[in-house]
């Protein structure tokens, strides 16, 4: 059995820190920011810009973890760790995993947003 896309406990924690209007604002921001971060990683990979890949992966990791999107956060962390090592060996595969996770996560978060 695979882990849930969103960890219920983390989601509850997040809800406890905010009100629904703010949560909607936050999800919108995340859904807008994340594709841009993925785009930055892709561009960094094309130009062999390790630092850009590392930074974008770091941001996506932190943001995703805040929503309890641990699968995406972990994929982003693995990519960050590769870049932190100073190379982009195997980074292409990891980026694909990040994108795949995000594509799955998107509708789930959009649904949660409607429930707020």
């Amino acid at each position: 059995m695979t882990d849930p896309l969103i960890d219920p406990e983390a989601w509850e924690t997040l809800k406890s820190m905010t009100d629904s209007a703010f949560l909607v604002e936050l999800i919108d921001l995340y859904l807008k920011d994340s594709p841009q971060l993925i785009e930055q990683m892709r561009a960094g990979l094309t130009t062999s810009d390790v630092e850009t890949v590392r930074r974008a992966a770091h941001s996506l990791k932190s943001n995703s973890a805040s929503f309890g999107a641990n699968r995406l956060a972990n994929a982003a962390r693995e990519l960050e760790m590769i870049a932190k090592g100073g190379t982009l060996d195997g980074a292409g595969l990891k980026l694909e995993a990040v994108e795949a996770e995000f594509i799955q996560l998107f509708p789930v978060l959009a649904e949660l947003k409607n429930e707020c």
């Binding site: 820190m17 905010t18 604002e25 936050l26 920011d33 941001s59 932190s62």
Partner: peptide, 16 residues
């Protein structure tokens, strides 16, 4: 914090 999501989240938690 350069990350807007983090900034907002932290700010909200502290304002509460």
């Amino acid at each position: 914090d350069d990350n807007k999501v983090m900034r907002l989240l932290l700010a909200r938690g502290l304002e509460q």
